[in-house]
Structures are given as structure tokens and as C-alpha cells.
Design a protein around this nucleic acid. Structure first.
Lengths: 250, 250
DNA sequence: GCGCTTAGCCGCTCA
DNA sequence: TGAGCGGTTAAGCGC
């Protein structure tokens, strides 16, 4: 749900912002204003048209017409207030530690809106699950030097093992892969697969990180943990799917 | 001049955005969308309510409800396009070097506006590292009594040393300056410069304070720490007219 | 809390 | 174009 005001008076804009601040909404205000900042450093920015963003967590951003970076900002946790004085609308933001202040003085407000921005989506760094497995299958050296993979997503009676292979010493290997921190359940899964086999398999658990309990269980069982560098892997992601989509529309 | 659409259809929003892109306006679009990014790294962000900003210089920002930083972005210079397909509005952004792509897929657009953001104001930054250097260069006694500085920001093969000089006892000196607490990296930097020289140099690390690990490394290397009195130095900087404005609001 | 490391760091300067 | 480096770096993690 969006509420917005187009070309409001400074008084209505101020009232609107204060109401939205109280219920910690995302607020965006575009207008003609100047900015002063003092804290770790200090700065002054003369009058101009720009955009002020106040987030529900108390972060503040001032964006000009160019560039990735905000020209002025405060990180989350600030206390923000808005008022009208001498025909100017003033947004005042205070950070406690380190002590910092930011002041935006509006001559005019062109548009102001606020909304709750309901957003519970997960942000996943790195490739999608499917992509991820196919990359590792092609590049087993990311798991372990000398490792050769013979099958992926192989069905066993006990479940589906991510990879089977042979390590540099000729041992047969089962690999369980997790895209995120591996917990005890991941170790149990791996253990289940290996114990379902009549012959001996080495166990490798491969994940960006592992919890302490999971690691001790893993060691107790005699399996190996291999750390995954997600960034290195995502660099191998081809941009082909994007290029195709782009080409189609050019 | 602001143009805006509240709860537009995806088709109108797309048309609006393309028109605004053509004349390089600042565009802001708030809605329900997902984001995919592939390039130096890669990421996927599921469906959620957030804000997409496209600037006239071809920078792109995706802001969620929290935090200073955008969750996804592209720096300036991107080629951006918008279209509707299968009841989704898609914003594509392509960066040439390095090759990177960002795709925002909108289910709904709540508000979209565009404007020119005329802003020619000067941005004046307070005392920066550079300012510090010039003051210290003029007042080497702040670093050490009897010190004479011979050059600043001198390029070596190993990097750029803040000051070179001669101390009261006639020793050649390299000075590394930090305007905040110096950490181990500052000591390493100084060490690197000195070790790159065939002749002997005394090392001085000059900062308001130093961390414990940094100090012990410094002593082990036989260099000197000199405390920088920020208050004394700031008196030589232009006085900020901001303090009084602050007082009024506190 | 402090201090250290990382980042799709960004953006600048200079060889 | 690439490397080095500062930044109101911010943000996360360990102690």
C-alpha cells in the first residue's frame, strides 16, 4: 500500500513524513533541498533537486542525479525528525555512536511517498541450485584437488547422493553438497548414504561453512569437510542465458 | 518537473519508463519484483516489495526496506531497457566492462515517477586526508620536534609514502599518516615502503591512536608511533558554521 | 564493546 | 587500461 503526495505544501509533507516515521515506513521525498552533515567528517551540499530516502530501520540516503553512491547518508539506527520552520521543511537525523548529524533543508517538495515494503524474500548469493551442481560437476577441483566425479544426483535406496566419484588416492567417494552453512542433518544425510553401501566410501561434505556441532559429528564419523568459495564458483557462471534473453529483444 | 503514475498497468509503466530512459531522466519504480544478477558474482532475490532506481547516467539501484546499501546495483554507464512479457514487466540492465547483467522482473508496479533532478550545487567536503597532509606538511612539529619534511605523497615502487624527511638527529625518515586509529595494515604499509629502500630509513607512524596488535608489530619492527592531536590540528582547519545550526535543534 | 576482514566494494588518481 | 588506495567506506564475525 502506497500513500503519496504530489507537490504538497511543506506543512503537509512534514506531517506526512512524521506520521510515516512513527510507524517506521519506507519514505521517499523528492524535492529542492540542501544538506549538511557533520560527524566522522563533515560536508555541505548547496540547494539542488535530489531524492531523500528514509528507511524503517533509520537509515538515510541522499541521492543526486548521478552515480551509484549516495552523496550523503547515515547508516541504520538513526533517530529522525521532521519539522517546518521559517518556510523550510527540515529533516534532521541523529546517529548515536559515532555521534553524527545530517540535516536536509527543503525549499520545495515535489513528491513524497511512503510504504511498508513487505519483503521476506531470501537473497541468495551465488548461482541457482541447478547451475551450482552442474558447475561443481564440471569443476571437481573446487571440492578437492585430484577428485574425479563419476555421477551426479545418483539414486540410492537410502536417498539421492549429490555426487559419486574417486579421489586422488583411488578411494570411492560420496559427496554431499550444501549451498549454505551445513548443519548436523547434512552430516546425517551423508552418513546414511555411506552406511547404506556394502563397500567402503569416503564421505565429503562440501559447503560454504559448517556449524560446530555438525563439524564434530563429521569428524567423529571420519568424514571430510571441504569449504566452498561461492564467489569463485559464481564467476564461472556463464552469462549466456542473459545474453540470449537480451538478443531476443534487440 | 515530476511525472508519476500510481498503480499503473505494467504496460503503461513500461512505456513510461522507456520514454524516461530515452531522455535520461531519474526514474524511480516501487513495486513487487524479483531480481537476478550475473557478472563478477551472481545472485537471485525472490519476489518482494522494493524500490528500483535508474539514474540518467545509467546506474541502477535496488533498495529493500533496510540498510544503507542497495541489495543489487550496477554502477553508472549501463544500457537499460524495459519491456513487458508474459504479464511481467522486465527491466534489463547491461554493463559492458566488466560484463554484467541485472534483471528486475515486476509482478506489480505501485508507483513510478521520473524527473530531471536539476542539481548544480557544489559539494563541499570537510577535512579529508588530503587536508591533513597539507597541514602536517606545514607543521612537522605536530609529528615530532626537530623533524623536517622534504616531500609529500612521494611515489615509490612499493606505493606512495605520505612524507619523507630528516629527523633532529639527521636520520632519513618515512612517515605514514592515518587520520583514524591505525591498525596492523598501516604498520605493514610503512614497513613495505621502508623495506623497498636500499638505504636505511626510520619509520614513523602518525595517527590519533593505534591498536594493540599494530603497536606490538610496530615495536617489533623498530618503528616509532607518534600520537596525532586532532584537536590541535582541527584548529588550523576552517571552522564549520554547522555547530550553531545543530545546537538550535538539540 | 573493539578490532579485523571482506566486498559484485565504489570512485579517484596516476603511470 | 590497470594498480593502488581512501572512504563518513558498511557489514559481518570473532574475541
Amino acid at each position: 500500500m502506497i500513500e503519496s503526495l504530489l507537490y504538497p505544501s511543506l506543512n503537509s509533507a512534514s506531517e506526512f513524513i512524521n506520521t510515516s516515521l512513527r510507524i517506521k515506513k519506507f519514505i521517499l521525498c523528492c524535492g529542492l533541498f540542501s544538506v549538511e552533515y557533520v560527524g566522522r567528517s563533515s560536508s555541505t551540499l548547496g540547494l539542488g533537486e535530489r531524492v531523500l530516502i528514509i528507511k524503517g530501520d533509520g537509515s538515510v540516503l541522499v541521492h543526486r542525479s548521478k552515480g551509484y553512491e549516495p552523496i550523503n547518508w547515515q547508516p541504520s539506527g538513526c533517530i529522525i525528525r521532521c519539522e517546518v520552520e521559517d518556510d523550510k521543511m527540515i529533516v534532521f537525523s541523529e546517529r548515536r555512536r559515532p555521534k553524527e548529524f545530517l540535516k536536509a533543508v527543503f525549499d520545495k517538495v515535489y513528491i513524497v511517498f511512503s510504504t511498508s515494503l513487505i519483503d521476506n524474500a531470501k537473497f541468495l548469493m551465488g548461482p541457482s541450485e541447478e547451475k551450482f551442481y552442474s558447475i561443481l560437476f564440471k569443476h571437481p577441483e573446487f571440492i578437492e584437488k585430484g577428485l574425479r566425479l563419476t555421477s551426479k544426483q545418483k539414486s540410492l535406496s537410502a536417498g539421492v547422493v549429490d555426487f559419486t566419484g574417486v579421489d586422488g588416492n583411488g578411494n570411492y567417494v560420496f559427496v554431499e553438497v550444501k549451498r549454505r552453512t551445513a548443519g548436523v542433518d547434512a552430516v546425517k544425510q551423508l552418513d546414511k548414504y555411506i552406511r547404506s553401501q556394502p563397500t567402503k566410501f569416503r564421505g565429503i561434505l562440501c559447503a560454504p561453512s559448517i556449524t560446530k556441532p555438525a563439524l564434530s559429528l563429521l569428524e567423529k564419523k571420519g568424514y571430510t569437510f571441504r569449504k566452498l568459495d561461492l564467489n569463485r564458483i559464481s564467476k564461472l557462471l556463464t552469462i549466456e542465458p542473459f545474453e540470449e534473453t537480451l538478443d531476443k529483444h534487440l
